[in-house]
Write a protein that binds this DNA or RNA. Structure first.
Length: 468
RNA sequence: GGUGGCGUAGCCAAGUGGUUAGGCAAGGGCCUGCAAAGCCCCGAACCCCGGUUCGAAUCCGGGCGCCACCUCCA
């Protein structure tokens, strides 16, 4: 059995996972900015974090999982200009920032639950941790890592020699390309705001007093302040989308290592690749809002999306298409049918026969969470002719602790049988024709109904009809 | 301009030197009066050109194509 190995962005290599404290894992996941619905790509990040958490639990670790809710301070524009997303959303919707946050936080949590993500142990909100954020900014100020501009307190990246190490950035080259807009008062384009002072005469919905004036915290600060509050100044795992590596997480590392005097601040950094939609990135700003409810409206079960997620490795871009989603949906349902078949099987499983499957399953997960291989093992169980029903039952339920596909309870919904006197009568007439072997007549009735989009299926329990 | 990644059979997607990944679709079969659903069976693929090697999808070099991040984004 190989040890659990994970790809650590910090070291750019696969490493054997060993938590700081044996048997206990602290992990932090970058959560949503709750100003808009979360799309399927966002959900992929949550599914990835959940896969990781479930793997830790499967390995017997006690896990403390923290996910933040960003409800302030995330600017709409480049590094440090533009409006705050929450303020902007409140303005356009006519609601308060708090109402906007509450709405999208709930939607996000519901989506997570529907795709089988375990709830985090802590779900801290940025607005409820302003004090902690100010304290961290003060530590940085006292350490000489900051400077003031007319609009706030900034982190001086030049004071942190290792700034570019985390993401392997070539700051010189980036500057020469001129893609990062210069902000006049910033000493270096990479410098970022720790605290933004509200401009004179502007009244924000969300603002607080601070040593630097009334205003609001910079986006990056909350993750450092809150993760440390709940997990300690050193912790094991930090996850997020790959887009966060070069800016958000680079800045988190800078402010945390400088402010707390620790290195490395986080032992393992794990990042998931993006979900791509028809070869175009799914992002809110490009208008491709594609959400879980959209899949549900198309008739997919939320867990079919989880199954879809599990079919690709988390560090690989995954291509979404209707066809691929339908393939996942069909595959998931078929696998469930196999599970349901053995779910109530009596008797005890034969441990010796189970072992090879368990080993392959764990080996797959231990190899940087290779979920596609783990799912393949589940299929091998389903197709295997040597295993007893009780053995299959035991394996399915064990694997589901990680897969999270609800094998223990899932039911395949029966086609809902509508009732319509006219159609029911025609179906009944067809049954009578069939009983009398008058198949010409029975087929005529079926064709008649088919012409209006109604399909008759003959089942062992009798005929059913449905609208196509 | 910098950085990271990808190119595997109709589709999605594992696989890092030699052994069947897996799923979906298609095809064949069972079942059915016929269908549908369900179940069973079934695919010798690896962008191109060189090289290393007994042997390469897998390593090295070159080329072509595609994507992502560096700017709000998971």
């Amino acid at each position: 059995m190989k040890a659990l190995t994970l790809y650590n962005t910090r070291t750019r290599s696969k490493e054997v996972f060993e938590p700081a404290t044996p048997g206990v894992v602290g992990m932090y996941t970058c959560g949503p900015t709750v100003y808009a619905p979360q799309h399927l790509g966002n959900l992929r990040s949550q599914l990835f974090a959940d896969l990781l958490k479930r793997t830790f639990l499967y390995e017997g670790y006690k896990v403390t999982h923290v996910i933040n809710i960003t409800d302030v301070g995330h600017l709409t524009d480049d590094a440090d200009a533009g409006d705050d997303k929450m303020e902007a959303a409140a303005k356009t919707s006519g609601q308060t920032a708090q109402e906007v946050a509450a709405l999208y936080t709930k939607q996000w949590a519901d989506d997570r639950e529907r795709v089988g993500c375990l709830p985090p142990e802590f779900l801290p909100r940025a607005t409820e941790h302003i004090t902690e954020q100010i304290e961290l900014a003060q530590k940085l100020e006292q350490g000489g890592y900051t400077y003031l501009t007319s609009d706030g307190l900034y982190f001086d990246t030049a004071k942190f020699p290792g700034y570019s190490d985390f993401a392997g950035l070539d700051l010189e080259a980036q500057q020469s390309a001129g893609r990062v807009a210069e902000v006049d008062e910033k000493r270096n384009p990479a410098d970022f705001a720790l605290w933004k002072v509200a401009p004179e005469g502007v009244k924000r919905q969300q603002e607080w007093d601070s040593p630097w004036g009334r205003g609001f915290p910079g986006w990056h600060l909350e993750c450092s302040a809150m993760s440390v509050k709940y997990l300690g100044e050193n912790f094991d795992v930090h996850t997020g989308g790959i887009d966060h590596v070069s800016v958000h997480h680079t800045n988190e590392v800078a402010q945390s290592e400088c402010g707390l005097g620790v290195h490395p601040w986080v032992r393992y950094w794990l990042h998931n690749e993006f979900l791509s939609l028809d070869k175009e990135k799914m992002s809110k700003s490009k208008g491709h809002v594609f959400v879980l409810d959209g899949l549900v409206e198309m008739g997919f079960a939320p867990l079919s999306y989880r199954y879809f997620f599990l079919q690709a490795h988390y560090r690989q871009q995954q291509r979404y298409s209707q066809e691929a989603m339908e393939a996942a949906d069909t595959g998931y349902k078929r696998l469930c049918r196999q599970v349901i078949e053995v779910r109530d099987a009596p008797g005890e499983p034969d441990a010796e026969k189970l072992a090879p499957f368990q080993a392959r399953f764990r080996d797959a997960l231990h190899d940087d969470l290779n979920a596609p291989r783990a799912v393949a093992v589940a299929w091998d169980v389903a197709k295997n002719k040597e295993l007893s029903a009780a053995g299959k039952r035991a394996l399915f339920l064990e694997f589901d602790a990680v897969l999270g596909l609800d094998f223990a309870n899932v039911e395949l919904p029966e086609e809902t049988q509508e009732s319509d006197p006219r159609i029911d009568a025609l179906v009944q007439a067809r049954q009578e024709a069939r009983a009398g072997k008058d198949f010409t007549e029975s087929d005529r009735i079926r064709d008649e109904l088919l012409a209006e989009g109604i399909v008759i299926d003959d089942t062992p329990e009798g005929p059913r009809w449905r609208r196509e």
